[in-house]
Amino acid sequence: MKKAIEILDLFMEHRKLTLSQIVKLTGLPKTTVHRSVNTLVETGLLHVCADEGYELGLKLLSYGTLVKERLDVRGVAYSFMQQLQEDVGESVNLIVREGDLAIYIEKIDSTQPVRVFTKVGRTAPLYAGACPRILLAFAGEEERTHLLNTADWRVYASGTMKSKEEVLPVLQQSRISGYAVSHSELTEESSAVAAPIFDHSGLVVAGLSLAGPTHRFGEERLPFLIEETRRTAARISTALGYR
């Protein structure tokens, strides 16, 4: 991996390089360079030119676009997340999808003594928890079916959903209502509400959630938490250009 990255780094200064040029610039054995370059070509990170040279592959453009989108949504969302935490008093999380997982990219912890802690960088399956599941709910139908068919259905807590048949009607309801709710799905005695964040093209690029101990997410307070989460997610979406 380190050698492959070293080769990719060369293309920051060179638009196109031949195999012999890569060998000369890196000082690596020709067999090592040949093997690494072949791997980079197979994965779409390098492209073979008509004259047998190499240049950066289009897959890197996809990665760059994803990074830009995620940096954009994180930067735009943060002030709204701060306001939501101040208004409601619960922890606020921002999550994006990474393949078949959800990854937490930003959080603002509650200041209350009893709270739910989440680490930035934490991952969770898309079927478990309100915020991961809202991303799954708004994925394309074909993609959603594939993700459900290939899920490992690991049980994290007493409320974790255990099958495609159990999750499907919940996903459908989330698509209709525009929010998701979970109780003891990833951690015992923790609850969350979540809403989708849309970009300028109408795609869901992130999920916003409130999380806290279950005793503060009871029937009397839940409608208020849902409404505040949906309202904040809508404001972030508007700031990202969604209409």
Rank of each mutant, 00 (worst) to 15 (best):
K119H: 14
E220F: 10
E42Y: 12
L28H: 05
Q173D: 08
D100F: 09
R122H: 12
L147W: 08
R175K: 13
V170C: 05
V73T: 04
S158I: 09
V23M: 13
K68S: 11
R122D: 11
T150A: 13
R175D: 04
T26L: 00
H146D: 11
H183T: 07
T26Q: 03
A151E: 15
A206K: 01
L101D: 15
V92K: 01
H183M: 08
S201L: 11
E42C: 10
G27D: 12
A206H: 01
V48T: 14
I176D: 15
A137Q: 03
R175M: 15
Q173L: 10
R15A: 13
I22A: 01
Q112N: 09
S174L: 00
T238N: 00
K3V: 08
G27A: 12
V116F: 07
I134C: 04
Y54R: 01
K2A: 14
L10C: 05
A195Q: 04
D100L: 03
K162Q: 14
L168F: 07
L225M: 11
G57N: 14
L60N: 06
K162C: 11
T32L: 10
T150Y: 13
Q172V: 05
R144G: 03
E166I: 06
T232L: 00
G99H: 12
S177E: 15
V92T: 06
H47P: 02
D87C: 08
F198E: 02
K59C: 03
R15G: 10
T18P: 02
L66N: 09
L225V: 12
E86C: 07
A137L: 04
V88P: 04
V76E: 03
L101I: 06
S201A: 08
H146W: 13
P196S: 05
A192G: 15
L40K: 02
K68T: 09
S163F: 11
V116S: 04
E227W: 05
A192L: 06
